[in-house]
Simulated assay, not measured.
Amino acid sequence: MDLFLDCEWADTLASELVSIALISLNGKKIFYAERDPLPSDPIPWTRTVVYPLLERGASAKSDADMTRALREFLADIDSPRILYDFGADRSLCQYVIDGFEVPDPSGPLPLGLEWRLCDELRADVERWWSSNRDQALRRHHALVDAQALRAAYMNRNHC
């Protein structure tokens, strides 16, 4: 099953996760989570653009809870293939799957996980933003961005 990934981060190196989202091609399987606590010293852009879009509440998860929840989500999917358009997204997702810095994270490791870089969809994603101005107001919310990648893929039907 194809899953479309997006992550938001707090630093210039794109290494400090803020939020993560995965959505299936049919739109029925969704994973969304935000770190709790959030990185305390984000770059100004993240503080002013990304943080105001966060949902918090049930979406806010400790690192251990996020790892467990993502592993359970992926374990429930036959042959998951994660499509992404930026390398840092893959690295951050793998970091969550691996358990951050937790010595013994819980939950089953996903089996048969595949990754697919779709950086050629970036122009299609930009066109989608241009034609979906209501969604563009929430750009840089990980789930909205994952939905944009999904829509670009569906319009092109490949990557």
Rank of each mutant, 00 (worst) to 15 (best):
R90P: 03
F86N: 14
G99M: 07
L143E: 03
M66C: 09
V49W: 03
P103S: 12
W129R: 08
H140Y: 10
P110L: 00
Y84G: 13
P80F: 15
S91K: 12
S106V: 10
E72F: 15
S131A: 14
I82E: 00
S79D: 15
Y51H: 11
K61L: 14
W129M: 12
L92V: 15
D124H: 06
S91Y: 10
E120W: 00
L70A: 05
I97F: 06
D85S: 10
R71A: 02
P52W: 02
R127S: 11
D145C: 04
E101F: 13
R68P: 05
D65W: 00
S131K: 15
A75D: 14
F100Y: 12
G112T: 04
R122L: 09
A146S: 03
R122D: 06
R139C: 07
R90W: 02
F86R: 15
P103K: 08
A136C: 10
G57H: 08
R68K: 13
A69M: 07
M66D: 02
A88V: 05
D104L: 14
D63M: 14
P103F: 06
A88G: 10
F73D: 07
S130A: 15
G57I: 10
L111V: 12
A146Q: 02
L74T: 01
D78Y: 11
D63P: 13
A58Y: 10
E126A: 15
E101G: 13
E114N: 08
W115I: 01
Q135C: 12
V102F: 11
L92P: 03
R81M: 07
A60F: 03
L117G: 02
L70N: 01
D119G: 01
S106F: 05
I82T: 11
G57V: 08
R122V: 05
L54G: 01
E72L: 14
D119M: 07
L117I: 01
P108G: 03
L53R: 13
S131P: 11
E126N: 14
D85E: 05
R47S: 08
A69P: 02
R127G: 04
A69W: 04
Q147N: 10
A69Q: 11
A60H: 03
F100S: 07
A88L: 05
D89A: 13
E120D: 00
L70T: 05
Q94P: 06
R133C: 07
A146F: 06
R139N: 12
R127M: 09
E55Y: 03
K61M: 13
G99W: 03
P103E: 14
Y95D: 09
L74N: 01
G57L: 08
L83E: 06
N132K: 15
D145P: 01
G107C: 00
D76I: 00
A88R: 04
K61E: 09
R127W: 04
L83W: 04
A64E: 05
S91P: 05
D119E: 08
A123T: 15
P105R: 08
R116M: 07
D63T: 08
W128H: 06
S91A: 10
S106H: 12
E72C: 14
L121M: 00
E101T: 15
M66Q: 09
D119S: 11
